[in-house]
């Protein structure tokens, strides 16, 4: 069952999605859902790190590279970004 995302998570997901579409060619936007795994969508390891870097820039957060490991789905990634955006707003 899909749990609806809060507005901030949805905003972050849209940014990640936009960058994923830019880095990985021939991707159907409808295939990108929170449960998606970037590898399954055709992103290689360099693509994945690149997507995160561009999304970090757009969100104006600096996520330590090592923190990104372990995020297997886009929802996991959104959670990491959300933690950093909320840290910044404190």
């Amino acid at each position: 069952m899909n749990v609806p995302m809060d507005p901030e998570s949805q905003r972050i997901l849209e940014i990640v999605k936009a960058n994923l579409l830019e880095v990985v060619f021939d991707l159907n936007p409808d295939d990108i859902v929170p449960e998606s795994n970037m590898t399954d969508l055709g992103a290689n390891s360099i693509d994945r790190v690149e997507v995160v870097m561009y999304a970090s820039e757009a969100l104006q957060v600096n996520v330590p590279t090592v923190e990104l490991h372990g995020a297997s789905t886009l929802a996991d990634l959104v959670e990491i970004f959300k933690r950093h955006t909320s840290d910044r707003s404190r």
């Binding site: 390891s45 360099i46 994945r48 790190v49 090592v66 490991h69």
Partner: peptide
């Protein structure tokens, strides 16, 4: 090993 983690560590050490 874990090629994703290795790339991340490679980049982290480079930076």
């Amino acid at each position: 090993g874990d090629s994703d983690l290795s790339l991340i560590a490679y980049l982290d050490c480079l930076e």
